[in-house]
Computed example of a mutant assay.
Amino acid sequence: MASILDSVDQRTQLVGENRLEILLFRLSGRQLFAINVFKVQEVLQMPRLNRMPHRHPCVCGVVNLRGQTLPVIDLAKAIGMRPLQSEASTIIVTEYNRSVQAFLVSSVERIFNLNWEAVQPPPSGAGRQHYLTSITKVDDQLVEIIDVEKVLAEIVPYNAQVSSELLADPIFKKAAGREVLIVDDSGVALAQLSETLSQLNLTIHTASDGLKGLQKLQQWADAGEVLTDKLLMVFTDAEMPEMDGYRLTAEIRQDPRLRDLYVVLHTSLSGNFNEAMVKKVGCDNFLSKFQPDRLVDVIRDRLLRD
């Protein structure tokens, strides 16, 4: 099954085209779930599982994979479904927010290529909405795209506190009252960024996908506001329904009223991959999630240029 990802390097051409590829899998029953292929390192039969005392209830144990010890998370249990532990042996090894972990699943189906415009936010009242970033359809079957950042945040709670040494820098007096726009489809990511940036007394605007973010910017511009005066910067996730962060950045650069905005790609996707793509679409900076001090360093650099 590891060969399912052999051609992943060829897929970088999707970036900037508002397209993505998702890995389809099942947990229990017939419902299809998915995550972005670019967050997947490999798919394989689970090696020998080592149980750990005092582990989180959703962590089955750890496996040793080529000298690296990885936690194995029962993804079904983590999103409120019946645990899979005794009836599944397939794991998806992923990298999120600079950490590598494995998710236990029932079976892996295939990789599917689609347009972000075909991906929608989950409907209100959906049973697992709490753990979904979006939904789509494949062959007329509903696919639920999991908010892995939320799953991981519940297992290892995040810390949004900025070090006191950084906050003591007098340059941050210039940040008070300035405005930023955060564009991200993950409620956890929005909370992380907002909690950190509020320590600098910044005024924070949010949008839950790239299209909503672009519309907000256009509305401000239509109202006669000078966006480079209004906003210190824009933070955008990479993968979002309707319009991804790469396309959002490209749209910003094509609009004369927006093109000089300072745009930071803030994403849980692979650092090496994104550093190359930042240049392709025209972002000003790249930041892996979630690093409070590094985030504040990016703000500091921007204030020094202002």
Rank of each mutant, 00 (worst) to 15 (best):
I35C: 06
K279H: 14
I299F: 03
C58L: 10
V105G: 01
A126Q: 13
A221N: 02
G16P: 00
L24K: 05
D293W: 09
Q218N: 11
L190M: 07
V8T: 14
L166G: 02
G224A: 07
R128C: 15
K230V: 04
D301Y: 15
V108A: 05
D229W: 08
D222Q: 11
D6H: 13
R66K: 13
S164W: 15
L190T: 01
A175G: 03
L75V: 02
L65M: 06
E149A: 01
K77A: 12
A223C: 07
L258G: 04
L261M: 10
T267A: 00
D209W: 13
V8F: 09
M81Y: 07
D229K: 04
G127W: 15
V183Y: 11
E144C: 12
A118V: 05
R128P: 10
A102C: 05
D139Q: 15
R98V: 09
K39V: 07
P170F: 12
D237I: 02
K289C: 03
L303T: 00
M81A: 14
R30A: 14
P47W: 13
N50H: 11
V226K: 12
T206M: 14
N113C: 09
E109G: 07
K77M: 11
L167F: 09
V156C: 00
Q85V: 12
P53L: 10
V40Y: 03
T90A: 04
Q120F: 12
V15T: 15
D301A: 13
I22H: 09
A2G: 08
G224H: 10
N272A: 10
D140Q: 15
D139C: 09
V151E: 01
I92L: 05
Y262T: 01
Y96L: 12
L248H: 06
N115Q: 11
L32K: 11
L295C: 03
G213D: 13
V264W: 11
N64R: 13
L261Q: 00
D147N: 01
A2T: 10
Q101K: 14
L24A: 08
A102D: 01
L65F: 06
N97I: 05
E17D: 08
L258C: 07
L132T: 05
L227W: 05
L14A: 06
L304K: 12
I35H: 02
K279E: 12
S28P: 08
I299S: 06
E149D: 01
Y158L: 00
I145H: 08
Y96T: 05
L142Q: 08
L181G: 01
W220E: 11
D229R: 10
D229T: 07
G245K: 08
K77D: 13
